[in-house]
């Protein structure tokens, strides 16, 4: 099968570019730990509120871990608990969230915090809040008539 010389040049360039992209992504994900949220832990969606850590939603200081705080969110149609939270500037926080009913989204607008909350699964994301300001949390996965009214708020404040 004949292939024009220029087409070969183009395909080598194109495939090479794709390989570079994949290498950058792979190093960032597997070596630097920037994986998309893939927690794999499960929970009975009917009993979320009686189980730790979801029995106490909100921000909690922790010791002896790679992060300073744990921030627990429980989502349900059509709200988040807690409804707003203050985080000290520069804190490293593990966000732990789940849903009590249908699928919800958990997006902190303007950040990389963006994960699906699915009934029965726990979603986690670790990050350092290194910019002050007010950040809107919203549901970005369709969950019913009040989907667009489902919000919460994070304020990153100088301590």
């Amino acid at each position: 099968m004949h292939m024009h010389k220029f087409e070969k040049v183009w395909l080598i360039f194109g495939v090479g570019t794709l390989l570079v992209f994949l290498t950058v992504l792979g190093v960032s994900a597997f070596y630097l730990g920037n994986q998309p949220p893939s927690c794999l832990a499960t929970i009975d969606p009917e009993k979320v509120e009686t189980q730790a850590p979801f029995n106490e939603p909100g921000l909690k200081k922790v010791e002896g871990k790679a992060w300073d705080y744990e921030l627990v969110f429980v989502a349900q149609a059509f709200n988040y608990n807690p409804g707003d939270v203050e985080i000290p500037f520069g804190a490293t926080v593990k966000i732990i969230a789940t849903t009590k009913d249908v699928i919800h989204g958990f997006e902190v607008a303007g950040t990389n915090i963006n994960m699906m909350l699915e009934p029965g699964y726990i979603s986690e994301h670790i990050t350092t809040f290194d910019k002050t300001g007010e950040y809107l949390i919203l549901c970005n996965e369709y969950c019913g008539a009040g989907h667009h009214l489902m919000t919460s708020k994070i304020e990153v404040v100088e301590s």
Binding site: G14, L22, L25, P36, P37, S38, L40, E118
Partner: peptide
């Protein structure tokens, strides 16, 4: 961004997704 799927399998399918770009590169040419 779904919690129930292992990160390594996600990445494997990302690699396969990038492979399906190749026939579109050929088409453009």
């Amino acid at each position: 961004l779904e919690p129930g799927i292992d990160a390594a399998w996600k990445f494997l399918q990302v690699v396969l997704t990038f492979l399906v770009v190749i026939p579109s590169l050929m088409t453009a040419f």
